[in-house]
Design a binder for these strands. Sequence first.
DNA 1: GTTTTCTTGTTGTAAATACAACAGAAATGT
DNA 2: ACATTTCTGTTGTATTTACAACAAGAAAAC
Lengths: 223, 223
Amino acid sequence: MERLEKYYNQIKTSPVFYGMSDDELKGLLECFNARIRKYEKEEMIIRQGDIISNIYLILDGEVNIEKDSYWGRRIIISRLGQNDNLALSFVGSKNIESSIDAITVEDTLVLILSYEKCTSMCQNACTRHKILINNLFQILSKENIELIQKIENVSQKSIRDKLLTYLSNEARKKHSNSFDIQFNRQDLADYLNVDRSAMSFELSKLQKEGFIKYDKNHFELLS
Amino acid sequence: MERLEKYYNQIKTSPVFYGMSDDELKGLLECFNARIRKYEKEEMIIRQGDIISNIYLILDGEVNIEKDSYWGRRIIISRLGQNDNLALSFVGSKNIESSIDAITVEDTLVLILSYEKCTSMCQNACTRHKILINNLFQILSKENIELIQKIENVSQKSIRDKLLTYLSNEARKKHSNSFDIQFNRQDLADYLNVDRSAMSFELSKLQKEGFIKYDKNHFELLS
DNA sequence: GTTTTCTTGTTGTAAATACAACAGAAATGT
DNA sequence: ACATTTCTGTTGTATTTACAACAAGAAAAC
């Protein structure tokens, strides 16, 4: 169990608490029974089938949102990091089982808020709750848009098009044609739903043809 | 311009207004400058690049959420119908351009609420707004979960697996192994990101092998 | 510093898919 | 009732991809 105070300044910067005064935030953390938990590398934070009644906020580390297909193949839905939330949509849809796993990629620190507890206590009446729900609405909106973009990435017909779409979208997000990506090759292949070796081959073809340049996780879009 | 009163009873049943009294709903419709608009078949309600500041609620009809890839291929992200919302996530993420088109599949009736107008007027202070934002949060949660399911559908590696995953998910939604699907063959192919003829071929193979039975848009899962 | 493990790129082959073309069925319009 | 258009299934071929196996390089462990 880590101490809340140590991370207070970072917690304050999370979109979840945007627009709250220090007093409101402190009250909220108490009301929500906030606690910090440390997860080891490759530990499961959330499993398919779990009922989620907590808000999970990543303070530090990286987490994969994954799904196993019936036939055992791994699908990476997204990679989350600092200040991202886990499985927020399953908090909003009460009593719906999680359809995803959340698995740490490295040692990860998570702030956990008991959403049920607070909503039952204050009946959504307090100011901080009003701010919170507004923030959650906006966070979910962003997540939604990200999911649509992921659908665009994986919906291209060839490996080449998937790569170019993914890299273009990353470049736009990072506001630069030169950027690092978060995935290694195997994870990128599982994210784009293609075979790793075929993808590697396509990457070096794209480089030979002068469309991109890359070194490990650093990529550059040319032309 | 259609008259609101005519559709009032249906509007009342929408998840957007769940938990509101008649008075609150009436006040809200006024405050939000509610109006009804009719769209013809294959008309665009929302275009990529639009800034969305209205809540769109489908009263009657069907709408495709689509995206054109760089190379002109059509991607169907989802098919929406009665009581569904359009592009809600772009209302929540202010000043973000829509990354999708919303195109009617048939003549469609839409309730339009000016979200900006109300939030600026009441500063989110009125009871009905509090109920509303709670409802929107839940609606977005559901949309989010649907998108994850769509990702599962299209992330299968073969056409066969995509079809079986899609059909299983539909069966679960409809609580029956015998059900109608909303897509025709071309639209289903654009939804699953596969070639229509290859998909047709795979469907009849699945039928011959005894896994499914189908006639037009009616499907049955066997075994 | 050496060994071991993990990651990435490369190649050949088998399998799956896209694409094009077409025919019959169904739906639509007149 | 007929003509026209749209939708669906079928087939052959060219292309793309998955899969397996392996080698070189980097990172981690000893």
